[in-house]
């Protein structure tokens, strides 16, 4: 069982760019993920902010395919 409020707080980061992408993803797309993908997202939140930013802006690609998959989904823009 993933603790939603805890995840919400884990998405509070040291950079605005990460706050917007991670909290936005949690709000709009997280619930529709498969359980394994949800766990990959939780794992991703343990990465340091500077590395997360590189992933989010597409300057680095995670070597772990599960993490790379969730990064791709976060980077896919949400129509607003």
């Amino acid at each position: 069982m993933l603790d939603r409020p805890r995840l919400y707080w884990q998405c509070r980061r040291g950079m605005l760019e990460l706050d917007i992408l991670l909290q936005g993803f949690l709000d709009t797309k997280f619930d529709a993920l498969a359980v394994a993908e949800q766990h990959a997202f939780v794992e991703l939140l343990d990465y340091p902010d500077a590395i997360l930013l590189e992933y989010m802006l597409g300057r680095m690609i995670p070597t772990d395919p599960r993490i790379a998959n969730v990064v791709t989904q976060i980077r896919t823009p949400v129509e607003s």
Partner: peptide, 11 residues
């Protein structure tokens, strides 16, 4: 209030 290495200094 957040994990220390998530402080804004990282930005």
């Amino acid at each position: 209030k957040v994990f220390p290495t998530r402080s804004h200094t990282v930005a």
